[in-house]
Design a protein around this nucleic acid. Structure first.
Lengths: 240, 240
DNA sequence: GGAAGCTGTGTCTACCGGACACAAATTAGA
DNA sequence: TCTAATTTGTGTCCGGTAGACACAGCTTCC
């Protein structure tokens, strides 16, 4: 019985062996409970021991289903982001609204499971759901006249913005007051060396201090893409 | 002797005690060697034990200088990104070139120490160097007519893009061939469910497959900011 | 009815971060 | 100059982690 690889687990290409007792656990149950545990207490509090206790089994029994922690977290990530919603309207002129929804939706998914972000680092096999999100965005971008590289780079750009925001907001969500006071203390101690920073924060506070960083970034990226798409379209018309 | 906090360590507001033997180590040496170890073998291979062996001391002696691993990594991060280069030309009309250089430079810093990226997650005190980078970008954006919130959100946008790229490129740097073959295998197995993805990658390969994702993202963000800045400038002129 | 093969379990190792007590070193004050 | 106070580096210990391995019991095939 060779241990299944991460790819085999992610894409479900393993078959049940014929002989032997029927397994009392399942991969789905394990991953579901692992995600629930991570949602409740964070990824750092997730250990094979604690997960096994939650499932009512011993630690080593989990290794019959998952080769190790790395493979488990890979499955957790793909389960956390879930299936991508089908692009509602793939007409080429609606790419802007489509990407807007795409970015907001994946932001909500990641926000519901902030621990999933740190699992997206490092070289790793891509899962079906993750690929589905990419496919969804690429369908929306299909008729824009952008090249394949540009379409892929656009997704990287959106992904980076959304994930960066989730990380930042999730970390300051619990205790933004404490965070703000700490920042204020630093500013009052060494603020004279950072005048532009002090000015920017002061102006932000005066203006209400609402955090629309997510929408701001989405709008800027969409505007930037629109500039490029318009240029491409103009060139194509000239060429015809 | 209360243990120094992360803020005190980062901002250097602790004073040497008068009595007792002179310390044989120093915070600088510890952080320098820790960064060298992380550069060589990654953050996961950095343990207090291994760091102490590298320094020729015992593990527990390190705790005389650093309260714990979390504080150590906070110092490592600020040392890794280094001091921000002074904005060479802060004339308002040069914001575009200034941000271009800013993004490329911080990209190089993070690329030299990819492990530093994962240390930027979670709520944490900000260090002097990190604040210096923010100040540098805010100075460049000072004369653009953007509000304080918009200037801060712009930096978040650039930061997210750069860090996301570093993470992705650093992970695929060592074995891009293996990664490509794995992706090709997945595509050939399940590619019919992801036609737009297959098309985009095929087109990218046909076009040479150079990865200019960093520059692509920077250009789109700059274009998007230019649109907003032009709108602000036009409104201001109308208002006058 | 074996025999083969799988499942869940208990035990074991190596490593991690960190607490705590202690001897040596150094300085302040008498 | 001598003593007491205080800091430094060290050795030992603890709880926790991931994972290896052998073993008993169950299930199915021949």
């Amino acid at each position: 019985m060779p241990a299944p690889t991460t790819v085999e687990l992610l894409w479900g290409t393993q078959q049940r062996p014929k002989r032997g007792p029927k397994p009392a656990l399942s991969l789905d149950r394990i991953v579901t409970e692992a995600n629930a545990l991570a949602d409740a207490e964070g990824l750092a509090s997730l250990s094979m021991q604690r997960l096994a206790e939650r499932l009512g089994f011993t630690k080593m029994s989990l290794y019959r289903y998952v080769p190790g922690r790395a493979e488990l977290t890979a499955l957790m990530l793909d389960a956390a982001i879930g299936t991508a919603p089908a692009p509602s309207d793939s007409a080429p002129e609606h790419w802007r609204a489509g990407l807007q929804v795409w970015a907001e939706t994946i932001f909500e998914r990641y926000s519901a499971h902030p621990w999933a972000i740190e699992l997206t680092t490092g070289q790793r096999p891509i899962g079906p759901n993750e690929l589905g999100w990419m496919e969804s965005a690429l369908v929306t971008l299909a008729g824009t006249g952008l090249t394949g590289s540009e379409r892929l780079d656009s997704i990287v750009l959106f992904n980076g913005h959304v994930r960066s925001l989730v990380q930042q907001l999730a970390s300051t969500a619990g205790s933004s007051a404490e965070y703000a006071s700490q920042l204020a203390e630093t500013m009052s101690a060494a603020g004279d060396q950072y005048p532009a920073t002090v000015a920017a924060f002061a102006e932000e506070l005066a203006g209400g201090g609402r955090d629309n960083a997510l929408q701001f970034g989405i709008d800027r990226i969409l505007d930037g893409l629109a500039v490029l798409i318009a240029r491409r379209t103009a060139l194509n018309c000239d060429g015809d």
